[in-house]
Design a protein around this nucleic acid. Structure first.
Lengths: 199, 199
DNA sequence: ACTGCCATTGACTGACCAGTCAATCAGTGA
DNA sequence: TCACTGATTGACTGGTCAGTCAATGGCAGT
């Protein structure tokens, strides 16, 4: 089957793109950098992708759909709503732990670049906010969360906090150690659910 | 004095740059766009600024030093540490309310673009995190905040939440109304200090 | 051993734009 | 009036790259 090799090459280009985008940033990478990194001819990138943008699109869509699925699953898994939020935080932080380069690209070049690239994916990004907001709203309904906080606000604060911590690791503002990751998971849930003030 | 007019022209260029950057994004704006918007010849931009980058630098530095000063003042003003955090959130949100275009540029092109531009200003950005972290740490010392949360983590979560809400307004994920702004101030402090769960 | 189809190659082109620079203008002081 | 200085102008250059395309390679079915 010819397409077997083809699928591999396509993947090879995507993986190379992650590395190069993570290293140099999207704007600073030339298509030839991706081709070189993938060990492939320049033109082949255009055989598999319509444009440089489409390569990034593909990476984002692949990854983001996993996130949306994970949020959904966290919600469906039941348990306290606090534990569902914990599952979301865990998933995102583990995604970073597992593939920091990909997550760096997604966050730096898409999620936090809502001006250029994010614009295209705003719908999908918003969809994540809303799924998290639903967990909050349900938690309020169940009496587990206070009712006087707008769910979407809470959701965005929660997600913003997570992303900020990821950025901290990405740019070495805070050390990216395993204990740091685990602390962060606890902290995020503790802060958002219990607050900073002692009970 | 010749420099009077010169200062005006310089300002005129900076103000025009804010508008154009906000509208098109930094990468997509040509220097000629700035010159046109300012009603000034192309070359004059280079008379006042070494490069296109320096225009953005200037905008960031002007604004960020105000933020650092505001955090400092919030801290020095005394009162509960909770109220100091509230003052910080207030300042940032009011900055957006007062000059959304400038804040959009700062956040989208610098703060959240730590890859390209932010890299240069990472020190200053980190400085803000640390000033906020100091407020948290002092609050812990004073027994107002629980001691088992790393101050820098708390600070980054807090700041990340603020920035995420600003992004929401910037990109119309949440409506940018006055009540929305005021709600956000309350929410941020309530969430970070009291948590979502009822007491 | 031929034919057709897709993968693969990389040289080339066309557009774009940051930054340069030589020329002109305008205010000031003598 | 003249000379000096800094402000202002905009045409031009040099370099960079995204995307094109015509040519080649190689496999699969007959």
């Amino acid at each position: 089957m010819a397409s077997k090799a083809a699928v591999d090459k396509r993947r090879q280009i995507l993986d190379a793109a992650v590395r190069v985008f993570a290293r140099q940033g999207f704007h600073a990478t030339r298509v030839s950098d991706i081709a070189d990194e993938a060990g492939v001819a320049y033109g082949l990138v255009y055989h598999y992708f319509r444009s440089k943008d489409e390569v990034l699109n593909e990476l984002f869509i692949e990854r983001w759909s996993l996130l949306l699925a994970a949020i959904d699953e966290a919600d469906r898994a039941g348990g306290s709503h606090r534990s569902r939020l914990a599952a979301v935080a865990s998933f995102i932080i583990d995604s970073y732990r597992h593939d920091p380069e990909l997550m760096k690209v997604i966050i730096v070049e898409v999620t936090r670049a809502a001006n250029s690239f994010g614009q295209t994916h705003l719908e999908q990004i918003r969809s994540a906010y809303e799924s998290i907001a639903k967990i909050v709203a349900d938690g309020q309904e169940a009496g587990e969360f206070r009712a006087d906080v707008a769910p979407l606000f809470a959701s965005m604060s929660f997600y913003g906090a997570i992303e900020q911590l990821l950025s901290g690791w990405i740019f070495d503002v805070i050390p990216a150690t395993d204990t740091s990751f685990d602390n962060a998971k606890d902290l995020l849930v503790t802060t958002i659910c219990d607050g900073l003030e002692p009970r």
